[in-house]
Design a protein around this nucleic acid. Structure first.
Lengths: 229, 229
DNA sequence: CGAATATCGATTATCGATAATTTATTATTT
DNA sequence: AAATAATAAATTATCGATAATCGATATTCG
């Protein structure tokens, strides 16, 4: 049985949550934007309760922040925090790679197919699709580590990071990254988790270094480019 | 201006949250125990809303879990998950130690005082106090790393772990750990973050290894001992 | 004029009631 | 008696209304 309009089969608060995060991630609601419970409730033809619940969950995941009696706003992630996030991601993945070495040995076809898909998207200039496949590639490694807590943290970071896309046009050189990705896959195929880990770490820390305070205003929100810089 | 009864100056939902987590952590609500919104609301002379909100926040922090329309229960943490948590904690702290090397060089007095306090508590057999100081010791290292995301993850882990205290009586040998702690402090004093990191990692992974499935039923809830084993 | 205070509009926090859903119980059929 | 269906009880999810608090503006007093 299918629903008609919006997002199907889910509690209202969940639908609200998706609706809001979509708008945050695609830049409709920019950092600092105020989210008024009753206003959103009215817009979505529901009541305050589910909206409030959705906002609280988004707060837990770091996408918005709220103060008692003052309300909720889309969170502004500082350049510093962004760097920290990438540093943490770097060593999460390094560690995951070492743990995943056994599981991925001679078992890299799924990794490979993500890289292929990412490559195709990159050639078409489709950043959105490229990013998705790229993310899946990295996530698969953490998944293969077999440590669910590691994966939970990785997901949390990824979600938080997504709100501030890091691919400013100048830095977007997927071709270079591609060689590295291939090297990582090769390392896994040979069962060399240590090497794969080192490569991943280097890759991500390099990314972190490209984030500086001058970027803060010139980040690209998924979809549209903001030429605030 | 002081309140009279319970916990002062906080939103109701926050007070409810503290009230519930207290009961989970001290074993009043054991794993699997069902938490009924209206029942708790009635017991605390409030309404469903704040209780629901509190439960959702506790879910986000991993202390309880809930399914749509089926309700909320105190989460049972498996031995496996516990091991994973300690593994993650181990390498978080290892990494933090390396980052903290500079900040802690010739600046270990606060670490030292926690160890002293922990030692005193241990001699008195006061596990509760020992654990607290021990936790602060480790947390200070992560704090000194200067990476707030790392600290956030560490806090999340710590909170989750707290619900299943790991110091079963047999394994409670603080004296052995003490030497290690001292060695860690010495390493920091000499600015040797790598060494401190290795020691921390070894310490924590050793801990993780003592957790096996036979422990699952014999964990000690903070405060009272459950001789379920 | 300027500081402190009262008032108003907007919004969050909480409440009590109702709808939707699950779980348990009873009735019905074979 | 076992399996299935119908009903009832319990609980979560949502709603609409009220209370509490914030921020801004107007007002009073020195």
């Amino acid at each position: 049985m299918e629903q008609e309009g919006g997002i199907p089969r889910d509690s209202i608060s969940n639908r609200v949550k998706k609706w809001i995060s979509e708008r945050i991630l695609n830049g409709t609601y920019p950092p600092g934007h105020r989210l008024v419970e009753l206003q959103i409730a009215h817009e979505l033809k529901t009541s305050q309760g589910p909206v409030r619940e959705a906002l609280r969950e988004l707060e837990a995941s770091g996408l918005v922040e709220s103060e008692p009696f003052k309300g909720t706003r889309v969170r502004q992630v500082s350049a510093r925090e962004m760097q920290e996030a990438y540093q943490v991601r770097a060593f999460i993945e390094q560690h995951a790679a070492e743990l995943a070495a056994f599981a991925l040995r001679d078992n890299t076809s799924r990794l490979q197919s993500e890289i292929v898909a990412a490559h195709e998207a990159a050639e078409k200039g489709d950043i959105e699709t490229f990013s998705r496949h790229n993310a899946v590639f990295h996530r698969q490694i953490v998944e293969a580590s077999g440590n669910s807590i590691l994966l939970r943290f990785w997901d949390a970071l990824q979600f938080e990071i997504r709100s501030q896309v890091i691919l400013s046009q100048e830095k977007f050189s997927p071709l270079e990254g591609e060689k590295l990705h291939q090297a990582i896959i090769d390392a896994f195929r040979n069962g060399n988790g240590k090497l794969a880990g080192r490569l991943l770490r280097k890759h991500l820390l390099g990314f972190a270094d490209t984030i500086d305070s001058t970027h803060e205003a010139s980040w690209v929100h998924a979809g549209r480019k903001s030429s605030t810089g």
